[in-house]
């Protein structure tokens, strides 16, 4: 009845120092970090340095690998494809994810739990398995086409896979949780009495939403959209399995370079350019929302 201010949102981790004071040995925090740092140096920083080295080496220091990419329309087309696919996937994820997150943030605890579970369950299945499942569902003889044929909605199977549609369906499926979760995290912290207050002050439900809820949810939109767009830029499995020959992305192009053409220098250069693109999008998002928001940390 008397809605108490949300006292639990902050400081629930207050009892963090759970190690008993009398414990005989406690690792120093910087040691714990050291393990992670070594791990990252070996599996992340070192390959990255090698990637940079390859991209400027052919043999001897050179810009040739990059010059080739800029000069070759097919390569530029791959970049264009990648950005387009990622952009559309982001837009679709936002269009589907925003209402979903809104529902989760505004509904009762029980349906919220069910929705949350439905969104999280796919996380426990590998991307490869989920993507292959779409091949089965969307194929010429897949369930969807068979159903459409059986109901007489189409006369011959429609191409749903090995083209842009298939890629989008598969990518949105995989990426949707990454849109919903940051959106939900921001929306859940919007005080519902703000919308109520707007109503009492003369705003219709739609105007209350547009004037109050939507602007306050914007950090979640930026966080979710950047996250999904960034992940979509580097997506490999889904476009490779569900895409057709016309949807070459940078990731599939790198694979061709490295595996089929054994051109490691060009592959590395492509990878570096993609990484630079990702980093600049992340930086833009971070400047807007604060880096912490983008990786899900609470803003102080």
């Amino acid at each position: 009845m008397d809605a108490a201010p949300d006292l639990n949102s902050g400081g629930t981790g207050g009892g963090g120092g759970s190690a008993p004071a009398a414990s005989p040995w406690r690792p120093r925090p910087d040691w714990l970090v050291a393990f992670a740092l070594v791990f990252f140096a070996v599996v992340y920083a070192y390959p990255l340095v090698r990637l940079v080295a390859w991209s400027f080496w052919a043999p001897g220091f050179t810009f040739r690998n990059f010059a080739q990419i800029v000069a070759e329309p097919a390569y530029l087309q791959a970049f264009y494809n990648t950005v387009e696919i990622a952009g559309i996937a982001t837009a679709v994820c936002l269009a589907l994810g925003y209402p979903l997150a809104y529902l989760m943030a505004t509904t009762d605890p029980r349906p919220r739990m069910i929705l949350g579970a439905l969104i999280l369950i796919p996380f426990w299945t590998s991307v490869l398995v989920r993507t292959l499942a779409w091949v089965v569902l969307l194929g010429r003889n897949g369930i969807i086409n068979q159903a459409l044929l059986a109901w007489g909605l189409v006369e011959r199977p429609i191409p749903l896979v090995f083209n842009n549609i298939g890629v989008q369906i598969g990518m949105v499926h995989v990426l949707l949780p990454f849109m919903v979760l940051p959106l939900y995290a921001v929306m859940a912290r919007i005080d519902p009495s703000l919308v109520t207050a707007a109503r009492s002050l003369g705003a219709s439900p739609a105007r209350a939403f547009l004037a109050v809820f939507a602007p306050l949810s914007l950090p979640g939109v930026v966080a979710g959209a950047s996250l999904v767009f960034l992940m979509a830029l580097g997506f490999y499995v889904t476009p490779a399995l569900l895409g057709g020959p016309n949807e070459i992305t940078v990731a599939t192009l790198i694979e061709i370079m490295v595996r089929d053409l054994l051109d490691w220098g060009s592959g590395a250069a492509l990878g570096l350019l993609l990484l630079a693109g990702v980093a600049s999008v992340f930086a833009a998002g971070a400047v807007y929302a604060g880096a912490g928001r983008l990786v899900g940390a609470e803003r102080a």
């Binding site: 109503r199 009492s200 002050l201």
Partner: peptide
């Protein structure tokens, strides 16, 4: 009548001020 049609002022427990609006924008909202 919907709440926005009743012309009743409400002061909430936690004030429910719009955090993204200035004082003048808050007061000017209605």
């Amino acid at each position: 009548l919907a709440p926005e049609k009743r012309n009743i002022g409400v002061v909430f427990q936690n004030y429910a001020l719009f955090p993204h609006m200035t004082v003048a924008e808050n007061v000017g909202f209605p």
